[in-house]
Each structure stands twice: as C-alpha cells, then as structure tokens.
C-alpha cells in the first residue's frame, strides 16, 4: 500500500509539476494529498485521511490525560474563557517540556451565519488558543490550527444548548 502510494505520488508529482511552480512551501504536500483521487470519469472518490487528525482521548500522553481537550467560546467571540486557563496552561507546560510533542487545534463555530465566515471564525478561535499555548511556553512549531467552521458540529440540533457545545476548539495531540 505504502509502495503504491509512493509511485502514485511520483507520477502525480511529474504530471502536476506546474503546481509546484506556483508556490514554494505550501505545495510540497499537494501531490501527495492527491494520491488516488485523480482521473476517473465519475469524478474523484476521495477517502479522506483517517488517522491524521491526531489521537483520541484515551491515547493522550499520560501527563495530560486528565486535562480538558475541548474549550468552549461565547457567541461570535474568540477570546479564551477563564474556565479554560488552567488546563491550557498545563497543556502548554507539557509541550514546553516535550519539544517533540505537537498538537492540532481544530476550531469550530455554531451553524448560525454563513459557512465561509464561520470557517474564519473557527480559525480565529483556534488562533486564540494557539497564542495562549505559546504565551505559556509552547513553541509555534508544535501548534497547528485548522478550522472546520460549522462543518463538523459536535452535536446536532438547532437550539442554544447545541450551539454552545459546537462553538469550540478541540485540542488533539499528533501521533508520535
């Protein structure tokens, strides 16, 4: 499977050499991302990439296993709430003393308003948590922010309770 991917990647890298010409840093991963998703008449059936999103709660490093990993926000707000401080500081301490560890911060919004605006709002929340971690000792290189906007709600439903649970940043430790 792995070998197959590598040949695919190589072929695609050649085919789409122009992509690399477009910008230097960001497109390195592009052709790899496209593996297996090209060229069929019916369009591309992508398989996503399970496992890249980090570990689930039970596989957290032992030092941070008891900490909160989901942090909530007020409506239309992106400031980290006081109730999140203690656990985020502990995550930051762990990252500071474990330079090989890294986290992915997934920002989310509730369903109200438009999707692209909510993606921006989710990123703003992710960035707020990222800044909090860095101020408290973790390295910029250890923190990645990605926003899903309103695309991946934690709970279904169209009331204020559901919305409050969906306005969140999820902190996930990356696989080692």
């Amino acid at each position: 499977m792995r070998a197959l991917n590598v040949t695919k990647v190589a072929a695609l890298a050649l085919t789409f050499a122009w992509v690399a010409g477009c910008s230097s840093t960001s497109t390195q991963t592009d052709s790899a991302d496209m593996g297996g998703s090209m060229g069929s008449d019916s369009g591309a059936m992508t398989s996503g990439s399970a496992g890249m999103g980090g570990l689930s709660g039970s596989e957290l490093p032992a030092e941070v296993a008891n900490l909160q990993t989901v942090f909530y926000f007020d409506f239309d707000q992106s400031s980290v709430k006081g109730e999140s401080f203690a656990d985020l500081e502990a995550h930051a301490r762990y990252l500071a003393s474990n330079p090989q560890a890294s986290v992915r911060l997934e920002g989310h919004a509730d369903e109200r308003g438009t999707r692209e605006y909510n993606i921006a709002l989710g990123e703003r929340r992710g960035n707020a948590v990222a800044r909090f971690l860095m101020v408290n000792g973790s390295n910029a290189g250890q923190v990645e922010v990605i926003s899903y906007g309103e695309e991946k709600p934690a709970v279904m439903g169209h009331g204020s309770d559901s919305w409050a649970q969906n306005r969140r940043v999820e902190l996930k430790y990356a696989g080692r």
């Binding site: 992509v19 477009c22 910008s23 960001s26 592009d30 991302d33 090209m38 060229g39 369009g43 591309a44």
Partner: peptide
C-alpha cells in the same frame, strides 16, 4: 472528472 488542486497554503 479530471481535477487539479490549485491552492493549499
């Protein structure tokens, strides 16, 4: 059905 990824910063 052919597609191109044109941007992923």
């Amino acid at each position: 059905g052919k597609r191109e990824k044109i941007q992923s910063f």
